[in-house]
């Protein structure tokens, strides 16, 4: 416990996953949900926040239990903790913010299957203190979240001409109104999410040379 709360070492737990150990672009985890919820910006944002809540708390809980968990059933224990947290989040959303819960619908349940969560529990929380685990959870969820938001931003803007549901491209630009512009229907289909993630990886590697493999 000699470390101060926000020591340099602890801060790297927050910042590393944003760039050089990003769960999506470097570790290639959690791709499935990154493709599924990014057709529009709002679900992408809410998904990022929900994953952050679940990941931070499950990391802390597993870290608190880490010295008691029997090694042979540790994966099951992790799964039970994550599943219980997700159900709690779902119940609370349904009771207090019904609108948001409807917006997320099936995606809340899908958080359980997000590989990033199990990955961080197994790789980090089982061997580290609660506070560090909490930071690691927030950091990784933020690393996951910003990719989701960027992908959601471009897909909604280019695919639907709007952001967060508000029309951005002027109506009279559209071909149907005598203009010159047409939304790119491909952008709302999942394959374009993968290509967008690919472009992000490309940009990231060209700026961060140490990520390039020989």
């Amino acid at each position: 416990m000699s470390d101060p709360l926000f020591s340099k070492k602890n801060l790297t737990l927050l910042t590393e996953p944003l760039n050089s150990s990003n769960p999506i672009t470097v570790q290639v985890l959690g791709i499935c949900s990154a493709l599924a919820v990014t057709a529009q910006l709002k679900p992408a944002l809410v998904m990022a926040l929900s994953v952050m809540a679940v990941l931070a708390f499950s990391n802390v809980i597993i870290s608190l239990l880490r010295n008691t968990i029997p090694n042979r059933i540790r994966i099951i224990v992790q799964l039970v903790v994550v599943a219980a947290l997700v159900i709690l989040v779902d119940l609370i959303l349904k009771a207090y913010v019904f609108d948001v819960s409807k917006q997320l619908s099936v995606f809340v349940g899908l958080i359980i299957t997000n590989c990033i969560i199990m990955g961080r529990l197994e790789a980090f929380a089982l061997g580290n203190r609660p506070w560090q685990s909490f930071l690691d959870g927030i950091g990784n969820a933020a690393g996951y979240g910003w990719i989701l938001v960027v992908v959601g931003f471009f897909r909604e803007l280019l695919g639907s001409g709007s952001l967060l549901g508000y029309q951005i491209i002027p109506e009279n630009w559209y071909l149907s109104n005598g203009g010159f512009y047409e939304n790119n229907g491909m952008m709302i289909l999942p394959p374009m999410a993968l290509i967008t993630v690919g472009v992000i990886i490309w940009v990231q590697r060209s700026r961060n040379r140490k990520l390039i493999e020989d």
Binding site: I69, I73, V77, A84, I87
Partner: peptide
Amino acid sequence: YAAIMVVLVAAIL
């Protein structure tokens, strides 16, 4: 461990 965990989680949920 498994038994306690399951009962506890079930009770909370």
